[in-house]
Design a protein around this nucleic acid. Structure first.
Lengths: 109, 109
DNA sequence: GGGTTATTTCGATGATTGTCGAAATGTGGT
DNA sequence: ACCACATTTCGACAATCATCGAAATAACCC
């Protein structure tokens, strides 16, 4: 992952509505949720929400797919994984430490 | 962790210089680095860097301590841990999944 | 106290971002 | 073809943010 991508992803998360949105999708699981239901859940006008969804999708943290008239959004766990990996890269100059890893498995760096 | 704290931390990271700064500190380990050496490493004017350091410190991701005339900054790994934990909270509605965890240990949710 | 070094605060400026209604687009049913 | 539904794009405005020089603060040494 390059720095520019990471910034895009972090900026996407660094906003009240988008953060709530992303966490909602994380909790919704891989099936995701249609835009309408998300807007309803968050109490944000459609046009605003659409703007935020686009930004999250652009950042790669969220996937979009169409299903009938609805657009379904879902969290991309692997992207989140890569982001955390990038942030903690070469943690403690390579020494073993309690640094976060991106995938819940043992730290193998 | 509350949403407001998470946003503060994410905003702190969502900026070119601060992201580079944080990763530098992650790699520097718990001893950290003095402000001057950081500014030099990143090629950013002192006043700009100070502004960024303050923001990272404010967010809780970075710690500040004085040592003689120097102010030493270091990454707070536990804070990063909590941030990732918050982002992935209740991942996949509690079902086992490949979600990131914050500490490199097995996923115990 | 005076001088030197390390770093922060102030303040002004330009650039980026969030917001939301109205209009446009895409999809499916009849 | 038409209508209704789901969602996005456009556009304008207010609010927040990044930048950096100059001045202020803090620590140390003589």
């Amino acid at each position: 992952m390059k720095s520019a991508e990471a910034i895009l992803a972090l900026s996407a998360l660094a906003q009240e509505h988008r953060l709530a949105l992303f966490r909602l999708l994380i909790q919704a699981g891989p099936e995701g949720m249609p835009a309408g239901r998300i807007a309803e859940a968050l109490g944000v006008p459609n046009s605003s929400l659409s703007h935020h969804l686009a930004q999250l999708a652009e950042s790669g943290l969220v996937r979009q797919r169409r299903e009938g008239r609805s657009l379904i959004y879902s969290a991309d766990y692997a992207a989140m994984d890569r982001l955390v990996g990038f942030l903690m890269e070469n943690c403690c100059a390579g020494a073993a430490c309690d640094a976060p890893t991106a995938n819940g498995k043992e730290n193998e760096r």
